[in-house]
Design a protein around this nucleic acid. Sequence first.
DNA 1: TTGTACGCGTTATCAG
DNA 2: CTGATAACGCGTACAA
Lengths: 339, 339
Amino acid sequence: MDETKNTPTGQVPTLADVAQAAGVSTATVSRCLNLPDQVTEKTMRRVMEAVDRLGYSPNYSARALAANRTNTIGAIIPTMENAIFARGLQAFQEELHQSGCTLLVASSSYEEDLEEEQIKTLTARGADALLLIGYHRKPRVYEFLEKRKIPTLVAWAFDPEVSRLAVGFNNRAAMHELADIVMAAGHKQIGCISADTLSNDRARERALGIRDAMSAAGLDPSTLRMVETTYSIENGETAFHELMAHPEPPTVVMCGNDVLAVGALRAAAAMNLRVPEDVAITGFDDIELASVAPVPLTTVHVPHRRMGQFAAQALLDELNGKKPDSIELPTAIYRRSSF
Amino acid sequence: MDETKNTPTGQVPTLADVAQAAGVSTATVSRCLNLPDQVTEKTMRRVMEAVDRLGYSPNYSARALAANRTNTIGAIIPTMENAIFARGLQAFQEELHQSGCTLLVASSSYEEDLEEEQIKTLTARGADALLLIGYHRKPRVYEFLEKRKIPTLVAWAFDPEVSRLAVGFNNRAAMHELADIVMAAGHKQIGCISADTLSNDRARERALGIRDAMSAAGLDPSTLRMVETTYSIENGETAFHELMAHPEPPTVVMCGNDVLAVGALRAAAAMNLRVPEDVAITGFDDIELASVAPVPLTTVHVPHRRMGQFAAQALLDELNGKKPDSIELPTAIYRRSSF
DNA sequence: TTGTACGCGTTATCAG
DNA sequence: CTGATAACGCGTACAA
């Protein structure tokens, strides 16, 4: 007989086991764990001793059911394979962990319908709050979230016109700023390789930023030559070839993200084009790839980690009734060699 | 009065609400959702109609409590900022999603104690199974997992000597193979930049692989000059400088991963050393960085995505009582320019 | 095939 | 400060 453990079976100990072992009620044990200062120091000691001895740890499903709170926060991102999301999510998770919250992750693969499904799944799983990327989604999705009263935060984008809680940056303004510099250097034929602008509002805003700058500089924005493609180095290469096949090829190719830009870089090398002498190339995001690339990329630096941290804080505040404000994070142009 | 919805309040509808709306018992509704073929097609229709009408979705906490299964699988990785884990985890999540499982993510920051804490957290949260990276952890952790009967899988490593369920590759053998080729090219002074070998068994095995090869080639493994440092390009640079400061510097620097190797590459460039003429450099993992680097890296390719997929399958099988086998994935040497 | 009723492990209310 | 005890929403024997 093992006298050191009085859980009858080899089962996982429950609150009741601890209560019995400590000679108190389950209510008291629960209080020791959740409201430590409503309990005598003496009973606290007795209870904690029993907790340790039995190796008790609370069943979160039961707790969630009773308290109607899971201490779990969901994040739905396009894909973790994109370093910007991996990095931000890592910071997000670390921050949550400090507050005893756990992260539930789902990915949308940049597909609107899949995102909607994942939102339903994560809320059904009891996520107390949700981190979503960008603003773009069907109204019915927002309605669902509101009806369910799930605190939701939009990250990786910040639109001053929208009142929704967000922690991000102004994609349009950032790209506008970069385009200003590009045009100040005399470029007039501008090409753009972008992610899909239909369902990806960050991509859309970035492209608009270029057009804004063109207009401001007295150029016709409709002369912007755009190729849309999905996220990969190879697709960046293909798009670059397409752009340069034009009789009057662009003198600068502004890419919607660093990965596409690296593809462009590679294609340029294959075509024996010097960068930036023959054609300039710019990126966006400033992931590691940007600085390591054969021709270090001029790009827009985005503070992904801080974004993740702030997003976690905001959501946590919201859950504690603190009414957080949206946060616009600054971006910065990192001028390297590709332009 | 809203006749289309008979949930009394604006609350989230429950099984009971659906049952009432469909004029059946809660048991029947539950069956419709979980055991569809134990129910008449007619009642099924009635019930599903009510489900749709009320917008019902099950409360997973309650379900978990009652069924003692959460359909949630936990993964604890060092960090998502490391592309190898981000990629594998993405594939892992996609695979889980296909089977209706959700992913709970926690990170250990390469810290053994933090990993232990996260294991406790995720099991308390009711993870049905766990994905862990590498074999190295305290015996008490494995004991805990066994006592709790949590199916656990080790990934990113495969040791034929250990019977534990694993989906990974033989780090030691892979590095051995690369070292063989390096030495066949005549290198005798070998340097190594490695991650911490104390608590990181993948790093340890890779270093051992080099030593194995040295012994096999008649070289004294104790002449291997090792520098251990943590994961970052900057640390790779520092370590490279350290290695090359030696009076008889190595002619080849074998790095434990691509990120450190890129750091070495950068340091070499800063020292005006040509790669591979003056000093050869190798990596491990074959992340994007490896092929994009100024001097494309010779490295060991690892099928990270497939590893994630297979890991998910194995864990899912285990949960369904299918007794999966461990899987050793092949790696391949990708010979590029850095050696 | 369907319904009844109990139990899952906690939290929280209300007396004591 | 502490102890009963009723929810919480669902799964599942067992009975019909």
